[in-house]
Amino acid sequence: MAITVKVMERPIGEASYVRATLKGLALTLKHLVDPHRVTIQYPEEKWDLSPRWRGTHRMLTTEDGTAKCVACGLCPTVCPANCIKLVPGEDEEGNRFPLVFEIDEFRCIFCGFCQEVCPEEAIHMGRHYENAEFNRARFVYDLERLTAQTHPVSELWDPAHPRGE
């Protein structure tokens, strides 16, 4: 049995191949002579990061150069990816400090909970994304490495916003 095909009645202006071709050529020529390029030439030019950008961590320090961390254990507790390893230590005066503080940046999901929960504002997410390394072990950042980072830290919320803070 023959299949009945519904034949669309379209005006010639829409159905004509010639007109469509000419229209297409005009369009491509327009882009050829007047390009609207948005490409960023990466190593030379860089994208402006949002103040809320959550990148690799940074540990802030006190004036004497030691980490602000008091080894309270909140960040490993809140961390959903279980990527923070913390071994607390205590000196004679009872001040707590981290003996070991390691973040596995491969396991980290960059949620920012650690920064949010930290009572001392010690651990921060960073506004940074160029993290390439040559081996896996280098992605476990220890305390020394975290304190040595210099990139700006994430705001997590917009400080100008009335509901922020």
């Binding site: 023959a2 034949v7 669309m8 010639i12 191949y17 010639v18």
Partner: peptide, 27 residues
């Protein structure tokens, strides 16, 4: 001719209308 002829268009539109009507009647 090219403009009206629907040279490169869906195969269905190249069938002339009488043939379509004939096929429809037959079915």
């Amino acid at each position: 001719v090219i403009d009206r002829g629907r040279l490169i268009s869906p195969a269905s539109s190249r069938i002339d209308r009488e043939r379509v009507a004939r096929i429809r009647r037959a079915t």
